[in-house]
């Protein structure tokens, strides 16, 4: 049976889709079978971030409505053998995802994969609660910024009440992933520090992804940032986070950009 991860945040634009793709690719790179599932019906983007937008034929809603079988809708990644994508539908019908339909699809997927990673839409509406319903682990993506921290706190409350685990009296394993972190600004006192966010939200830390131009660059190419340039700072942060999800103990740090000789020289000259 698969471990089911939901990547969630409440607030939009903090890096849920980037994180879903990056963790999915990082886990698949270790040889595990991974499927990433887009729950953002009407505003799908995981296909684009994964570089699979031109290969979408059937989607999540087609499977639920019986117009396609699950294997027909799954898209195999071009780079990693064991990575698959189930795209969301672009329909404007918000109720296209039904509880029973989602239950059935997640159940089928978890029989064939090691990891099912659900990319939640922003907000706390139906799509978001459906995405978190089956979660064993919730990755709460947060920026060191007041509105994002507040919304994450709200999402934590919902994870504790509206998931299948909560209904059974169990708790979802919640982990904080701090993204767009700028260690220099935090040190200057211009940005919430990791410890501040941890103290406010009181969640265990899964990783710290530094603010980096590599994230945008990887999305331009349609390659998950964790495999685009594996030596880049965000790639190392995501690969470390994936290994922590697999139970490895890895010292927590903010990966820094490795500078080549040439850029070191440029930096000194600047």
């Amino acid at each position: 049976m698969a471990k089911i991860i939901t990547v969630t945040s409440g607030k939009g634009g903090v890096g849920k889709t980037t994180t879903t793709a990056a963790l999915g690719a990082a886990l698949a790179r270790t040889g595990d079978k991974v499927v990433v599932v887009d729950f953002d019906v009407g505003l799908r983007n995981l296909d684009l971030i994964m570089g699979a937008e031109r290969r979408v034929v059937y989607d999540f809603v087609n499977v639920i409505q019986g117009d396609a079988r699950l294997p027909q809708a799954l898209i195999k990644d071009k780079r990693l053998e064991s990575l698959f994508l189930l795209p969301a539908s672009q329909t404007r019908d918000k109720d296209a995802l039904t509880e029973e339909g989602v239950d059935k699809v997640i159940e089928d997927l978890s029989r064939h994969f090691d990891w099912v990673i659900c990319d939640s839409p922003a907000g706390i509406e139906r799509g978001a609660t459906l995405a978190m319903r089956h979660a064993d682990i919730a990755v709460v993506v947060t920026n060191p910024e007041v509105s994002s921290v507040r919304d994450s706190d709200r999402i934590v409350g919902i994870l504790d009440s509206k998931t299948l685990k909560a209904e059974r009296g169990e708790t979802v394993d919640k982990r904080l992933l701090l993204t767009r972190y700028d260690a220099a600004r935090a040190a200057r006192g211009d940005m919430l520090k990791t410890e501040d966010v941890l103290e406010i939200l009181s969640l265990p830390l899964l990783g710290i992804v530094p603010e980096s131009p590599d994230v945008l660059k990887a999305s331009n190419y349609g390659v998950p940032v964790s495999i685009h340039d594996p030596d880049s700072a965000p790639a190392r942060a995501y690969n470390d986070a994936a290994r922590r999800l697999k139970g490895e103990e890895i010292a927590m740090d903010v990966p820094k950009q490795k500078l080549g000789l040439f850029s070191k020289f440029l930096r000194r000259a600047a």
Binding site: R150, A186, R188, G189, D190, L192, K193, D196, I200
Partner: peptide
């Protein structure tokens, strides 16, 4: 001109 302590304090009260 450290703004982070402000953010921290406001969040703690609000939450």
């Amino acid at each position: 001109n450290n703004s982070a302590p402000q953010a921290r304090e406001r969040l703690q009260i609000l939450l």
